[in-house]
Design a protein around this nucleic acid. Structure first.
Lengths: 197, 197
DNA sequence: CCATAAAAGTGACCGGAGGTCATTTTTAGA
DNA sequence: TCTAAAAATGACCTCCGGTCACTTTTATGG
């Protein structure tokens, strides 16, 4: 039993992370304090910092983990697409699954905007493990491109429309529905990436 | 000279507001503290709260004022538009003028997302004096509509694309240029609001 | 089985935030 | 010059993220 202490530490870490996911999920990133996270898990505040260097760091780990899971569900579906429109629908199924994960989409939005104020955080947030990636998007659709419009621009426009819709949603504005935005995004992608016919 | 004290109070208020606009403009909403605002204007922290109840309140007043000015410049230009495309271009001239106002567009974005966490603030932010308004947009373009697609949806999609681009921009991502987004937004509007042909 | 060292856990403390309010300073007018 | 009201002050409150000297628990060699 040489590993018992490490196991205990691992379990504490898991408990703290579970507590964090729960509280972030209900109250958001900024509204959730480190003291709340530890208290809710039954530990003292100082314990948090034995496992992560900052609240930001833990949040990034959670983002990475969540994004990985969303993408795992997506994998395969996009490959089966026979044209750009089908690929876009597969991508929007994926985006819709993010929106359906409680209010995490608003929390990602909150953190994304929050991250823009710190240079180091901003750089991190441009990596694909933490964010919708224009490069990954380009990979997913480039087989279906029928024009020389840069596929990563299609991806960036798609992300812009999606995240703009998240703002719309987080303010409680009800003018747009998810199908509205999906239709708009796909139309936009087809306009730039498919031959007119 | 019965008004001298009131005049002094007004001037203090103006000085504090000017200080706030300067500091918000360079450092953003959250990064700028009330103490910094008052110190930079040569007053003590307590003076701030003789004029506004909170940092939020002052910021909303600044937003209202700025939005009013942007719109004043826009007025007339949209009226001269002969079709939906020209109207959209006039609207994007207006949006571009917001983007060209130092880094205020990112600061509006910051505050918009920040406001979503407070119910009262969120309700306020849905008012047209504080935000790009789908109703105002609908008014501006409804004369040029050739379909029965709801004009306020065109407005909301346009705003989503614009604000999504602000996120793109605030993260320093350089995939999209302003003309890219303008072209996409106008294409989207024409697709939904103009007869195909 | 105990002594000890290492690991896990604690919570008082720090600086700085938004906001409050009793107190001081300035001003207007009789 | 005196006084009452208005303007300005800054110590103080609570809470935040983060630190760290300290206590408690645990593993292990003699």
């Amino acid at each position: 039993m040489a590993k018992k202490q490490q196991e205990k530490s691992q379990q504490t870490m898991q408990e703290l992370m579970a507590s964090a996911i729960e509280l972030f999920g209900s109250n958001g990133f900024i509204q959730t304090s480190v003291a709340e996270i530890t208290e809710h898990a039954g530990y003292a505040k100082g314990s948090f910092y034995r496992h992560w260097n900052s609240k930001d760091e833990l949040f990034l780990i959670i983002v990475e983990q969540k994004l990985k899971r969303y993408r795992a569900k997506r994998n395969g579906k996009v490959d089966k697409a026979k044209n750009l429109e089908e690929a876009m629908h597969a991508i929007w199924d994926f985006l819709e699954s993010i929106i359906n994960d409680k209010n995490w989409s608003s929390i990602f939005l909150e953190f994304t905007v929050y991250s823009a104020k710190s240079e180091t955080l901003r750089k991190l947030m441009n990596k694909s493990v933490y964010r919708l990636s224009n490069e990954i998007f380009a990979e997913l659709v480039h087989n279906h491109m029928e024009t020389d419009f840069p596929p990563e621009k299609i991806g960036a426009l798609n992300t812009a429309l999606f995240e703009g819709y998240l703002i719309h949603r987080s303010l409680g504005t009800q003018v747009l529905s998810l199908p509205d935005v999906r239709a708009a995004a796909i139309a936009l992608a087809l306009r730039n990436g498919a031959k007119q016919g």
